[in-house]
Amino acid sequence: MLVPILKQGDYLIASIQSELSDADLLKLRDDLVRRVSEFRSHGVIVDVTVLDVMDSFATRTLRSMAHMIMLRGAETVIVGIQPEVAFSMVQLGLKLEGVNTALDLEEGLALLNEKIKGDSRRG
């Protein structure tokens, strides 16, 4: 399942549309890292609202993706982790250390604006 990646100004927005296999997740990671360079993006938002499972593989892949994007000089925000999924991740012992998270797309954009443009106006 392909994840559409939208370019919006300095940012890239990847909105996951359905459950992803391990291979789909790796492809998303590689595509995003590549496009950050291609479009000289400063920020990336990955919307995981539709994911009802974030297991150790998904968490590790998102974490490594955020780290790779950071090494390319851009910020990543993961948005839309569902409450049940957050509960399950904590039970599993999974951490998204060093990765920005926000409630939804709107909050994610505000966080990027704040971090990148020093714009403290939220909302």
């Binding site: 391990d22 009802d52 499972v53 974030m54 297991d55 049940e84 999924v85 399950s88 599993l92």
Partner: peptide, 17 residues
Amino acid sequence: SNTDLVLIATAISEVVR
């Protein structure tokens, strides 16, 4: 419950992987 559905699906994901 919805929370349990996520926990079960996640546990299955781990053992199948």
